[in-house]
Design a protein around this nucleic acid. Structure first.
Lengths: 240, 240
DNA sequence: CGTCAGTTTGAAGCGAATCAAGAACAGTGG
DNA sequence: CCACTGTTCTTGATTCGCTTCAAACTGACG
């Protein structure tokens, strides 16, 4: 277990890197980031947003995994997207949008409120040229991931879906610097993988066994570890 | 066949109704809509946008059906979303977004450029209070449909997917006034349905036969007609 | 009248769901 | 420290939804 203080520190770094990837920041913008102070904690399984709720309290994820999901009346559940450290969750403040789905913490998670920073930088685009434009880029990223999810679940086989999703999660961690090297630990049960990929838990189990035999992953209770990015890449290539 | 002039006229009405649904418009805003003049025609199958292209030329659909789709390297295709008369396609101008997928005309289609209207109303939110905020609402609608698509293809059976999609398309036509009553004609081949729903053409055919036996649809070459909204509703209920 | 895209049909097979039962494990309280 | 509990994982047998393949059929169109 990593200490909470440490994981929050790497979370802050993840936010900064994520922002810098989307737009170069100047000094006053980097300074503005230090105004992100108001932490919010969520327990594993806790609901963060309901469908229909106003999206007026955007937050950055500092630590932990969060997902967006929908459910059908008979209980079938579909995970739509994952939010990782450095990601922005629940944004839509500008346009008065409302949530289209649930937002749930998959693990214990810590976030930091970003509403004020967003409002401030939007109102002064001259002082914050990078940050003022970055919020739209987050929305664009989210749309990209929804599209990936549609293609994955609509046109890929089970093992392709798993490899593709794991690779996506891995890359997202890497580029914001949360992860330095393998193994890459995903705190997801096989049921969560199934709900994300439109597969039954049992079948996820069987596909993971296959990936395990290929030395691509290792599994233990409530987690899957990706061991070898190159082998994973090869497994994904087939679908690109 | 409907005359082009007539279908463009109903297309203009569809745009107006769609906008009014999203935000009430004042007189100067209704007048601003008359500035939508520059028509663009697309042939069936014609590509409108490529992935990576800047989204700097947003257009309203006046007539015809357009879709967004992705393809894998081995040719598997996934339709992500449909754009119908009254819908806004290719928007992202504000944030300099780039397209994440192809945009293709499924039928001969006519659009009208909206870039200037969007820029104008954004720059003068006091004069155009409704329109200035409406563009974000379009993005929100698109996100909603992407989410529906994920849930449909991830967690529904073939006949549920078809019923759910048809109902969605029907409702969207109805609420913008393009459609007054049944039958509701969809100019889609069974292959297109398959590409949208993550099913093989053969299986789409079989499910359509079932819906035909239930008097819900009628089919002919290159089109599917929805005959009875109540029966369709009942078929969808199971999944809500 | 031939062509071609789209639809329809049947047979065979595969991928994944389902059902059911057991094993491994973490957390809990005695 | 250990029995108890509940969650997660694992396994085998069976079923089913859907795909694939191949071939024939239909209707629009030049």
């Amino acid at each position: 277990m990593v200490s909470r203080a440490l994981s929050i520190q790497t979370g802050r770094a993840a936010i900064a890197r994520h922002l810098e990837i989307l737009a170069p920041l100047n000094e006053s913008e980097r300074e503005a980031l230090t105004s992100l102070k108001e932490l919010v904690d969520f327990a594993a399984g806790q609901e963060i947003t309901k469908p229909g709720a106003p999206l007026d309290d955007p937050m950055f994820v500092l630590a932990g995994w969060i997902c967006r999901c929908s459910t059908l009346s008979d209980g079938r559940r579909q995970i739509l997207d994952f939010y990782l450290p450095g990601d922005l969750v629940g944004d839509g403040s500008r346009t008065g949008k409302r949530a289209h789905a649930f937002c749930v913490a998959l693990t214990p998670a810590t976030c930091v409120r970003a509403g004020e920073l967003i409002a401030l930088t939007r109102s002064q685009p001259d002082r914050f040229p990078g940050l003022a434009n970055v919020w739209g880029a987050f929305e664009s990223e989210i749309e990209k991931r929804l599209i990936d999810q549609i293609v994955r679940n609509g046109r890929m086989l089970a093992h392709e879906r798993l490899a593709h999703l794991i690779k996506d999660l891995y890359e997202r961690h890497r580029r914001v610097g949360v992860l330095v090297s393998e193994p890459f630990v995903m705190p997801l049960t096989q049921e969560m993988f199934g709900d994300a990929l439109g597969l039954s838990t049992v079948h996820v189990n069987r596909v993971l066994q296959q990936l395990r035999r290929e030395q691509i992953v290792r599994t233990s209770l409530g987690r899957v570890e990706m061991l070898n990015a190159q082998l994973l890449e090869a497994a994904v290539q087939a679908t690109r």
